[in-house]
Design a protein around this nucleic acid. Structure first.
Length: 596
DNA sequence: CCCCCCCC
């Protein structure tokens, strides 16, 4: 059988300083005669595979970009697999030339080894490398010092070969990327123990990936005005470092730092792609940990008032504005804008906005916050936005959206629980919620049948900072151990014990101060005063008035022991008046789930 | 070399 391999490719690579663009894009076909895992994992912690690549006559070393790992894991790429190199770069590591394969295609092959290749390092160099693969019409006598294809006549020539962003690494120095600025930060000044200075950063993107780049001090003067969001540039001769992933969500294990020698040239090639998103559905934010960064697209359902907060850390005031985002998940989430963005934000027509790199918070279950490296695109021309717009205008607008609640906050193990499910009291008991080691959260619609009036509160510390600890009556005053203070009188706080029922059963639940106050309609202090004043009729009526009402209770079921017997305590964390349209929608979905 | 991203 004729060899499918690209003849003399290994010698061409080995004898060229830098490969011509025509070779880089020629999609050579080689056989991977060996595929081995490298012992030292890469900076990303991912496995790295080394391949020995043969053209049938010689072999040389190659590395696989980590995104190709699944092909090795699945054995799609294995010993003696024939592959077509779709994108690759060459690199010299420890004096040895190797190929880094970024994307490849498997070429069908019997699995036999082709020929008896020898190490290209021992082979005689190729006399005229450029003639082998380069079409003769564009043959370039300076092929050993090639330049990439000129993209546009208005564009300046880049330095060195064009690299895909994906192919950049700290071990290369002669590279040029052609990339779009998808995000540009404001100019920032800093001052700390180690000194002071100014900086800005941008995110570059091409069709292989994205990378963050930062300029400090003099390079700010050189490049801050030149680099504009949305425009395309050639960038070369900058330093590449390991990225500190905790500070941005740009998907690259490396980042660029501009240096004085860095060259940046504008380019008006429109083929470079626009911003890339990896959207997380609003309903799936529970999958993410607090402080993770994510991309979200949603309809702006509500725009809050402009407000201001004072930072606890710096004592500086910040403008803030909350908006509510909804999507097809039926869930809504709050997103907070800060500073200038909060002040200038306007969206009264329920637009679609795509957010990139917003930070996940756990306030009220799940919330989002703009991060300095986050971007916001109003009605972007992307499929997800069009589909969201169509859905919202057709049906979403009239839908009820489930807001995140604190019932989705991380539990005592620090694990995130999903938005609480709706259960009947019978289901909560049948499913033994709260009987395991972990805390269970659920929502139940039930009616208050009875509220205990004998004990309904405890005397709490009157410290205005909200200590709320129990205080003891010492005759001369009420003493708080924690605050080491004695108060003339305590503040009574509810521990309200209620029996609630639905058609499937009843149970006793406890509501603490805020929820209990909402249910009773008056404070525990006021109630205590009635009792102390002997106002029994009014006192008893308060309990009767609060009974017979129906709520959607957000419940927490947790095990504890009483007289050495394990039992479940049901705590009510929130009580909301029933939302009948939403409840009906829930019933409809239950009915739909059982119909054929 | 920043890396704070705030509040309730």
């Amino acid at each position: 059988m004729a060899s499918p391999l690209t003849q003399d490719f290994c010698r061409l690579v080995h004898s060229s300083d830098e490969l011509p663009e025509s070779v880089i894009t020629s999609e050579p076909i080689l056989q991977a005669v060996s595929v081995k895992k490298i012992n030292a994992p890469g900076a990303s912690g991912l496995d790295r595979y080394r391949v020995i690549l043969s053209d049938g006559t010689h072999f040389l070393q190659g590395m696989l970009a980590t995104q190709l790992n699944p092909m090795v894991d699945s054995k799609e790429l294995d010993k003696n697999t024939v592959i077509k190199l779709k994108t690759f770069v060459t690199n010299v590591v420890q004096g040895r030339k190797l190929i880094i394969i970024l994307t490849l295609e498997v070429v069908p092959w019997s699995g036999e080894k082709i020929g008896n290749p020898t190490n290209v390092e021992q082979a005689a160099p190729l006399a005229a490398p450029q003639s082998v693969l380069k079409p003769s019409t564009t043959a370039n006598v300076n092929a050993s010092k090639p330049v990439a294809k000129q993209p546009q006549k208005t564009a300046a020539a880049p330095m060195g070969p064009l690299y895909p962003i994906e192919g950049l690494s700290p071990y290369q120095n002669k590279w040029t990327i052609k990339a779009r600025v998808t995000q540009k930060s404001d100019l920032k000044h800093w001052s700390n123990q180690r000194g002071e200075g100014k900086l800005f950063s941008v995110t570059f993107m091409d069709d292989t990936g994205e990378i963050r780049a930062t300029g400090f001090n003099e390079t700010v003067d050189q490049f801050y005005d030149l680099l504009q969001e949305g425009k395309v540039y050639f960038v070369s001769r900058a330093r590449i470092n390991i990225a500190k992933k905790q500070f941005n969500n740009v998907n690259n294990e490396y980042e660029i730092t501009f240096e004085n020698s860095t060259e940046i040239q504008p380019c008006d090639d429109e083929s470079v792609p626009q911003i890339k998103y990896n959207f997380k559905s609003v309903g799936d934010l529970g999958d993410l940990q607090k402080d993770e960064l994510c991309d979200v697209i949603g309809v702006v359902k509500e725009v809050g008032e402009l407000g201001s907060v004072t930072s606890k850390a710096t004592n500086k005031p910040f403008a803030k504005r909350d908006i509510q985002l909804v999507d097809q998940s039926g869930q809504s989430v709050r997103l907070t804008l800060w500073g200038k963005q909060a002040e200038t934000f306007q969206a009264d027509d329920e637009p679609v906005i795509a957010f990139k790199g917003v930070k996940v918070g756990d306030f009220g279950g799940r919330s989002l916050s703009m991060f300095s490296s986050a971007t916001m695109a109003l009605n972007p021309d992307i499929p997800e936005a069009h589909s969201l717009r169509g859905w919202y205008d057709a049906e979403g607008r009239s839908k009820h959206f489930q807001a995140y609640t604190s019932a989705t906050v991380s539990n005592s193990d620090g694990q995130i629980t999903k938005p609480s499910e709706i259960k009947t009291i019978g289901q909560a008991k049948d499913e033994q919620l709260g009987m395991s080691d972990k805390t269970d959260y659920f929502t139940t619609q039930a009616t208050v049948s009875f509220i205990k009036s004998e004990t309904f509160s405890y005397p709490a510390c009157a410290n205005p900072d909200g200590c709320n600890k129990k205080v003891t009556d010492e005759g001369s005053g009420w003493r708080c151990e924690k605050c080491d203070k004695t108060w003339p009188s305590p503040i009574h706080r509810y521990i309200l014990s209620m029996n609630v029922m639905d058609y499937a059963g009843s149970f006793w639940i406890t509501a603490f101060n805020e929820v209990a106050e909402q249910i009773m309609g008056i404070s525990a202090n006021e109630l205590m005063e009635m009792r102390d004043n002997g106002n029994d009729v009014e006192f008893q009526r308060s309990f009767q008035k609060a009974s017979g009402r129906t709520y959607n209770f957000q419940m927490m079921a947790k095990q504890d022991s009483f007289n050495d017997q394990p039992r479940v305590r049901y705590q009510c964390r929130r009580a909301a008046l029933p939302d009948y349209p939403a409840d009906s929608a829930h019933l409809v979905s239950l009915i739909n789930s059982i119909s054929v």
